[in-house]
Design a binder for these strands. Structure first.
Lengths: 241, 241
DNA sequence: TTATCTATCGGTCTTTCAGACCTTAAAATT
DNA sequence: AATTTTAAGGTCTGAAAGACCGATAGATAA
């Protein structure tokens, strides 16, 4: 049998397939709070419960898993170029009452002022919720576990990468950026250490413009065009005052 | 409609599903070489080509994705308790000629002397191949890309964790362990740095027995029971002589 | 028997970078 | 003009890796 003949005779339904979904944790920082996007389900199962952003892979519409995640994300947030990172996939019989499901988990970082929420089809409401609150709610499916995994990943990356810059839009001061890091980590960082690292990472550039504020003006920076996130070889301390 | 009625009427075939597979890179170190397990395919597609260990998720047999990976791994290597880590999932239309496929990728660490190769169903041969060689071969599907991702993950983890200890079996000397690290990384490590880190990681314990060899005897160590891999807060240098 | 060889193993100085603390600067406010 | 507050940078300390060295223990060769 040739490869061509084989493919012609190949029966995709011979093997029973799990359903395949993508779920994303959309992070933003607003008013010194790390927040995630929750969607109120208007369909069964888990009707009326809050859930993460997700949906089935559409093999006619999506070229890849990343494409599925981006499609859902744009539908719900109106933002099309987030930092998006795949975290893991979870598969099992018990996690969805409809049967064996594989869900690939992503998290995205979106600047708060870029958000344009839209509950969309199958949902009656959408809102940003603080991490503390979300972890105290009863979320649909195993979404609390999913949220914890993404949170852990994000916090770890804040200790050794420049990733959280993707929560900033346009120009920002180093103090503003430090505040974002501190909010994610849940503790303060030594100002000097933070500045040394950021300025040494070669990923930021001065805009030349100062932030005019009520106190001493601060230099504003922007992300250098075309640079990837910087990985430090040494972590910040993970526990602090 | 109640949740119960909904589930009763739910039609799983309403949404066309991608096929779902698991592929694993089985690493071992032997004779100063980092090697991976390759399987010679005896079926279409890619008949006669070498591939990684993989297979479809069987929703009646497997409780989770990890279970699928372990099942395939035990079939091919005869080893049932490897260090197994999920790396990522790749999904798309083009990666398998049979259509849209999601593959969840794992890598496993197996001590060389624990291997008991068995090509198994659908394969005519199985062999351990050095990384250098494998990367020069024409592998089935997108398995070369998959291999590169796993290799990158393993090398990074060797810089800041104790993970490679899982390539050792029973008792081992620190020199033997260092050699494993050096083989993975592809460069030498300062002996003093390595010993300081390993002994400071609190994950090893002296066995009290010395390795009798042709030179000065060395203390042998074993992995402490029940400890998880240690994460250092500082990386080893990633490039060296 | 003694010298040599080689791998083991610990001593210690240097280097790098984060932590901690402090001083100075630049604005607005009192 | 003095005070307050945030920005920005100086500098000392501490921790851990890099680099180099010397002592040790056994096997082997002279």
């Amino acid at each position: 049998m040739t490869e061509k003949e084989f493919l012609k005779n190949y029966d995709p339904s011979a093997f029973e397939r799990p359903s395949t979904a993508v779920d994303s944790v959309i992070f933003t920082v607003y008013q010194e709070e790390l927040q995630v996007l929750l969607i109120k389900r208007d369909e069964l199962p888990f009707h009326g419960k809050w859930s993460l952003v997700g949906g089935y892979v559409n093999i006619h519409q999506d070229d890849s898993l990343d494409a599925t995640a981006l499609r859902k994300l744009e539908e719900k947030t109106g933002f099309s170029s987030p930092y998006l990172e795949q975290v893991m996939s979870i598969g099992g019989k018990e996690r969805d009452p409809r049967g064996w499901t594989i869900s690939t988990i992503y998290y995205a970082l979106i600047p708060h002022d870029a958000l344009n929420l839209n509950p969309g089809k199958g949902a009656s409401d959408a809102k940003m919720t603080s991490i503390a609150e979300a972890l105290n709610m009863e979320l649909a499916f195993d979404h609390k576990t999913v949220l914890k995994h993404c949170l852990e990943r994000l916090r770890n990356k804040a200790l050794y990468t420049t990733l959280p810059v993707h929560l900033m839009r346009g120009n920002f001061t180093l103090s503003e950026l430090q505040s974002i890091f501190e909010t994610i980590l849940g503790h303060t960082i030594q100002q000097k250490s933070f500045r040394r690292r950021m300025l040494g990472s070669e990923t930021l550039e001065e805009t030349g413009e100062m932030r005019e504020t009520t106190r001493r003006p601060a230099m504003t920076y922007r992300l250098k065009a075309g640079v990837s996130p910087h990985y430090f070889t040494r972590n910040l301390e993970s526990v602090h005052l």
